[in-house]
Amino acid sequence: MDPQTFLDIATVVTKLRMYPYFDIAHYILMSMSVREDNHPPSTSGTHLFSRKHPFSCWIATMLMCFAGSIVANLLIGEPLITPFKDHQAVMTATAVWYVINYSPFDVIYKLCRFLPFKLVISCMKEVQRVHKVHHAVVFAMKNYPGSYLIIVTMGVLKGAGYTFMRTFERLLRGVWIPSSNEILQPSFNTKGCLAASILFILERKGLIDAPHAVIFFGVVIFFVYFKLSSLLLGIHDLFVPFENLFCAVFMGGIWDALKQVLSRGEKKAEENGSARGGSAATKSKEE
């Protein structure tokens, strides 16, 4: 592709407005996530949670739809209810929640789960994710200059806040799974937002000599590519091999392996010594 054409496309992607289409894609995925967490598609049930507890289902879905802003506001001391000031966004999210859960014959939900549609919706969601991460980094660098931990955390929470909200959202639905939370088991989305936040910080500090549109578009391609890999090829986490290598080198993995080898050698030597002692005793007894 011609560099100028690539730059033009990148500039267009950078200037895309998130509302309504990209935000609707996000609301669709969050509504489906809450519904499928109650009743996975592989299970069949006549009494769906949304029928028995519609208010709880709606609250849980709204928390997931606006999770990034809620959790980020909690971090910086802003009112948690601020994201719900945008009535247009709340009404849009509510309309999406309604059609996902209550459309006749579940036609909207089934359509959104149809692979070609799901691919498009997921790619649009990744564009929105990068947009949120970038704006969070810009906001944090203006208000907390030099506080890189806060800046990175803001980028991660805005881009993948719903993964941290999941535990609390489940509590509202009467589900308690303490071993399944984002702190214990970080997802690829959280790790990707962490990497994207660091990249945007380096760009803002002038350590990366490239146009902003190219960097932004490159991050979008990164997220979209691995989302497609997850949906089509089942590759869910790119960072696992690097994490395993890092843990083996710097988190005691080598020493644990060496300790196991030495303990096996000692145990084998003890067993051989015991075997020799037993055979010698048997031989002397025969004599």
Rank of each mutant, 00 (worst) to 15 (best):
M32R: 09
M32Q: 15
M32T: 05
S33L: 15
V34Q: 01
V34P: 00
V34S: 09
V34T: 12
R35L: 12
D37Q: 11
H39C: 07
H39R: 15
H39M: 10
H39F: 01
H39A: 01
P40E: 03
P41M: 05
P41E: 04
P41G: 04
S42C: 05
S42E: 13
T43M: 04
T43S: 09
S44F: 06
S44Q: 04
S44K: 07
G45H: 06
T46Q: 04
T46W: 10
H47R: 11
L48Q: 11
S50R: 09
S50E: 14
S50A: 04
S50F: 08
S50G: 02
K52A: 06
K52M: 05
K52I: 09
P54C: 06
P54T: 01
F55I: 15
S56R: 10
S56H: 14
C57R: 00
C57N: 14
W58Q: 07
W58R: 03
I59G: 00
I59R: 11
I59T: 09
I59V: 14
I59W: 11
A60D: 10
A60H: 12
T61Y: 02
T61E: 03
T61A: 08
M62R: 01
M62S: 08
M62T: 00
M62Q: 15
L63Y: 08
L63G: 14
M64L: 12
M64F: 14
